[in-house]
Amino acid sequence: MLEDRTDHTNAFSEPNALALSKKIFASTGLSLIEVIGQDAAKLLQGQLTCNINDLMASQASIAGFCNAKGRVISTLLVVKSPASFYLILPADLLDTVLKKLRMYVLRADATLQDQTGNMRILGISGFAPEIDAPTGNFAVGQIPLTTIKLPGAPRYLTLGTPDQIDEFAGLLSSRYEFEYGCLDEWRYQDISTALPWFDINQSEQHIPQMLGIDQLGGISFSKGCYTGQEIVARSHYLGKVKRALFIAECQPSASGVVNGCKVLDGISQQSMGCVLANSVWSGINRALVVLQIVDGLPKNLILDDDYRTPIAII
């Protein structure tokens, strides 16, 4: 559970914990980039908010990849393998991240490869897939495949080739009773644990602290320079972060909630922020919203949609 940012927020608190049934998710909405070469660590150290040099085979990290103004192009889950680094990120942002990261390679001995077609990312929820499964946030195990523990209730990402994943799923089916889940449910679980994945519409809109990346241990304030570092550090040390991430719910509307939709004060109609990501599951629309925190949150929040849909922080 992450600490409150102000007296007005209960974001990420225990009532949001999921009671998960045993499920496997063949689709997680995520893609994978592999960074190979002697300068792979140096390249990533100069671009991502986390400290690449602190990563171990047993510990991954969430990170932000920022532009020069400190706005997050994409959030990433960075995993160190014996010969390379894996970058796990929303599939919607794969091409954008590849294009922008390759601009910084120059003469470095580093190659970025889209491995989405060669590697599969399996989602597991509601149970630990083996007795020695990793337990800490973003801890990594080999059980027998690379498996990353996600924050909150038992949830994991497992990486492998299609054949390895099929074999692993067969192994799980021989040991556990589980169901197969869908992409909407997996995204709902991500949102319920405040994992700040987002799509292209919200790229380059927020600094890392507004997305809770610091709360998840994904920002190093001592590692030195990286693209956008000056803005990120200044916001941290001068206390100028004016927005924060919250988990919210609203009734699903006929037209659906659009990521990027404004969130308004229901009384003054003043813009308070926007929807970062949302997913509907079991008749509930759960969303991550980035909201102003300077003067506290109003009690009556609505979406700036045709229905003026009420939305509540949970």
Rank of each mutant, 00 (worst) to 15 (best):
residue 253 S to A: 07
residue 243 R to E: 09
residue 242 K to S: 04
residue 254 A to H: 11
residue 247 I to A: 05
residue 258 V to S: 12
residue 251 Q to D: 08
residue 240 K to F: 04
residue 245 L to T: 06
residue 268 S to L: 01
residue 240 K to T: 11
residue 259 N to A: 13
residue 239 G to T: 04
residue 272 M to D: 05
residue 271 S to F: 00
residue 272 M to R: 14
residue 259 N to Q: 10
residue 240 K to I: 05
residue 238 L to G: 03
residue 248 A to C: 05
residue 257 V to F: 06
residue 236 H to R: 13
residue 271 S to W: 00
residue 236 H to L: 00
residue 248 A to F: 07
residue 273 G to Y: 04
residue 255 S to N: 14
residue 253 S to N: 08
residue 247 I to H: 01
residue 250 C to Q: 02
residue 260 G to T: 02
residue 263 V to D: 10
residue 271 S to K: 10
residue 264 L to M: 08
residue 240 K to N: 07
residue 243 R to D: 04
residue 258 V to R: 13
residue 255 S to I: 07
residue 270 Q to T: 11
residue 267 I to P: 08
residue 251 Q to L: 03
residue 259 N to M: 07
residue 235 S to L: 11
residue 270 Q to A: 15
residue 267 I to K: 15
residue 254 A to E: 14
residue 270 Q to W: 00
residue 235 S to I: 05
residue 261 C to W: 04
residue 235 S to C: 09
residue 253 S to F: 00
residue 236 H to P: 06
residue 249 E to N: 10
residue 246 F to S: 03
residue 250 C to S: 09
residue 244 A to K: 07
residue 246 F to T: 01
residue 261 C to N: 11
residue 248 A to N: 03
residue 260 G to M: 05
residue 250 C to D: 02
residue 245 L to C: 05
residue 243 R to S: 13
residue 266 G to M: 03
residue 249 E to W: 00
residue 256 G to S: 10
residue 244 A to Y: 07
residue 268 S to G: 08
residue 238 L to F: 13
residue 246 F to W: 06
residue 262 K to I: 00
residue 249 E to K: 11
residue 235 S to A: 12
residue 246 F to N: 02
residue 250 C to M: 06
residue 259 N to E: 13
residue 246 F to H: 14
residue 245 L to Q: 07
residue 248 A to P: 04
residue 242 K to R: 07
residue 237 Y to G: 10
residue 258 V to L: 12
residue 243 R to V: 02
residue 273 G to H: 02
residue 255 S to M: 11
residue 257 V to I: 15
residue 267 I to Q: 15
residue 256 G to N: 10
residue 264 L to S: 02
residue 257 V to S: 12
residue 266 G to H: 02
residue 263 V to K: 11
residue 265 D to S: 12
